[in-house]
């Protein structure tokens, strides 16, 4: 291989920009290597430029965000499921014989109803119920068939059908605490728009949104981060609640009591990310969180102190750690008397 003569007039920048030069630096083979070495030997006054150009190219290492092999396999599995869903044969057209005029529509309705039932049965046979259980310690990410993400807190449990292609709504059943990030139905994928979370004593209807559900023995907490959801209580079917971002609802089935208020929704979903950074959370917001999650009453000694702000990584794994972090970060004492926490400045 002979190099063209015009390299004679190349500057360092020109060498860096040159295809052949880049190929040589990045993927040298015997031929290109011999060729360039020969050329540089014949043009010793160009050695400085080629050396500089080579050093520049070799110095360019970019930060990478590469998925793990396991993540690639998981994504591939989801992708193949999407394709399989698209490739399912559409139902064969059904011929309806001419009937007497009056009976026609009724018959059509019956046939349609039958088809719908048959289709549903077929779908239930094809899809199978899967269940994921949270880890004993820490969080676990679960991907739903529509590639929505669910983060399960310790010991939580979620069940759903593994194929949603024929389903008339996307449904999951939850025990324990989970954070949902629901994707709107993807274009081209024939998915039902409706998304429902079933828990012990309520159903949550969802449209493209992220929210946190903490289902428990005593009460269930729901916090909405983005989007819009509708809660239907099994005991009070006639009074659904509509939530906007930042809304918090606590339902106690035993006492049949619903508490609704505004909170810092990020705080209620903070468990899902280890060392998640929070910005400007007030002690008052933290106090409300502690009341809702750990069942204490919290009394703060002064209004100014309640407005004290906290920013940074927060671990909320357990009560003790959380209270220690708070008392250290804000220089406060937290005193426990029965089921009440008294918070005041450190003396």
């Amino acid at each position: 291989m002979e190099l063209p003569k015009d390299y004679e007039h190349y500057s360092t920048d020109d060498f860096i920009a040159d295809d052949r030069f880049l190929q040589w630096v990045r993927f040298p083979d015997a031929e290109s290597d011999a060729c360039w070495r020969q050329w540089i030997a014949a043009h010793p006054h160009k050695k400085e430029q080629t050396d500089e150009a080579r050093a520049f190219i070799e110095g360019l290492h970019f930060k990478e965000t590469l998925p793990t092999a396991a993540a690639v396999e998981a994504a591939l599995a989801r992708n193949l499921a999407m394709i399989a869903g698209l490739e399912q044969e559409p139902a064969a057209p059904v011929k309806v014989r001419r009937l007497r005029k009056a009976g026609r529509w009724a018959a059509a309705a019956v046939v349609l109803g039958f088809l719908a039932m048959a289709g549903r049965q077929l779908w239930q046979q094809q899809s199978r119920m899967v269940q994921y259980t949270g880890l004993a310690d820490g969080v676990r990410r679960v991907w739903l068939p529509d590639s929505s993400e669910v983060i399960l807190n310790a010991n939580a449990e979620i069940s759903f059908r593994d194929n949603w292609q024929q389903a008339d709504r996307r449904e999951v059943w939850l025990k324990g605490e989970a954070f949902f990030d629901i994707r709107p139905a993807a274009a081209g994928a024939h998915l039902a728009r409706a998304f429902v979370v079933h828990s012990a004593n309520m159903e949550i209807d969802v449209l493209g949104t992220s929210f946190n559900v903490k289902e428990g023995q005593a009460f269930t907490n729901i916090t909405l981060n983005t989007g819009k959801i509708k809660i239907r209580f099994s005991d009070l079917p006639e009074t659904p609640l509509y939530l906007s971002p930042g809304d918090f609802v606590q339902y106690s089935a035993k006492k049949n009591k619903i508490v609704r208020k505004r909170v810092n929704a990020d705080l209620y979903a903070v468990w899902k990310e280890e060392g998640r950074q929070l910005e400007h959370v007030t002690l008052k917001e933290m106090a409300a969180y502690i009341e809702d999650i750990y069942g204490y009453h919290v009394k703060i000694s002064s209004r100014e102190l309640a407005q004290a702000q906290l920013s940074g990584g927060l671990r909320v794994k357990d009560e003790k750690l959380l209270l220690e972090t708070l008392s250290f970060a804000l220089n406060i004492t937290i005193e426990k008397k029965a089921d009440t926490l008294f918070i005041q400045p450190k003396k």
């Binding site: 989801r78 999407m82 394709i83 698209l86 590639s147 990030d181 993807a186 274009a187 081209g188």
Partner: peptide
């Protein structure tokens, strides 16, 4: 998650 969504959709399109 959004990045993955994008990749999934273009691959499905690529396949079809």
């Amino acid at each position: 998650a959004l990045v993955e969504d994008g990749i999934q959709e273009i691959f499905v399109h690529f396949w079809t």
